[in-house]
Amino acid sequence: MFLINCPFCGEREQSEFKAGGEAHIVRPKQPTELSDDEWAEYLFMRKNIKGIQFERWNHAHGCRKWFNMVRDTSNDQIKAVYKMGEKPPVK
């Protein structure tokens, strides 16, 4: 079970958090301008990487804030956490 460093609350047990999938997928500003394929790309397509992955997490049983995490999915090492809107601190 992960120990997650919530950017607002500090280290907490994973059981307090909810995973929210891949990060940095921005909702298109003008969805109506998009073709079916472009919309499907936004809606369904996810990278599901083995290795370094950028993810959204929510401190659901805590401050309820969403934040981003960089995690190596091959060994579950959390490389960094950062607030929404911030640039990822690692490549």
Binding site: G20, N58, A60, K65, W66
Partner: peptide
């Protein structure tokens, strides 16, 4: 509630 909070915090801050 979770969904509304998600949109407010991430898409429409």
């Amino acid at each position: 509630l979770g969904k509304l909070e998600d949109y407010l915090q991430t898409e429409w801050p």
